[in-house]
Design a protein around this nucleic acid. Sequence first.
DNA 1: AGAACGATCGACT
DNA 2: GTCGATCGTTCTA
Length: 208
Amino acid sequence: MASFSREYYMGDTVDIARSLLGKTLVRVYNGQPLVCRITETEAYVGRCDKACHAYGYHRTARNTVMFGPPGHAYIYSIYGMYHCLNLVTEPEGEPSAVLIRGLEALSGEEIIRRLRFGDRDGGKFNAYQKKNFLNGPGKLCKGLSLTTAENGLDLTEDALFLCESPSDLGLPCPSPKREQICAGPRVGIDYAEEARDFPWRFWLKTEE
DNA sequence: AGAACGATCGACT
DNA sequence: GTCGATCGTTCTA
C-alpha cells in the first residue's frame, strides 16, 4: 500500500512535522480524491509543550483523539467558524500531533476551489483567491471539507491518508522546485510562555 | 449556568 | 498594519 503506515506516525513529533513537508495528503470527498502537497506544519507535544491542547496530559472531550493510537486525524473547531487538521503522532499515551498549516492542490483542484470559495463567479479563480487558497489551517480544512465530523479518522484507511508522492497514486509527479526547509516559532500561541519560542513551525521556502 | 477565550480569517484603514 | 465575526470548548462556581 502506498499510504503511510501506523509506524510512520509513531515517531518523534518534531521530526515528523519537518519530514512531512513536500509529502502528499489525500482526502477522498464523495468518492473524489483531492490530492495536495504539504507546505507548512507545526508540532505540538503534550508532554512538555504549553501550547498543546494536551499539555501535561490534560485530557478533555475535545482532545481525546490525541490520547489514542497514532495515525488518526485530530480535527477541532476554532473561533466559532473554522477547523484545524492535525495528525496524531507518538506512541499511544503520549498525546501529540502535527498541525497542517499549508497545502498546494495537485489534483481535484476544481472541487477544492468550489468547497473553498463556493460557486459564485462560476468558479472563477482570481489572483487574490489564488494567493489565499490553502495557505492556512482553517482555509485548507474548508477546501477539503474537513470538520469535526471527520475527527478521529484513521489515516491508514481510505478516506484521508498521506503518501510519499503523487506518483504513488498513479498521478504525474510535479517537477521539483528549488526549495529549502525553514523553521521558526509557531503562530498564535503567545500565551504559551517558554513554549512560545520553540522553533516547531516548518515550511517550504520557494526560491523563484 | 455563565463567563472567557481561542493552534483563524477576511475586511478594512 | 488593525479589528470584528462568531460559537464550541473549557473553566469556574
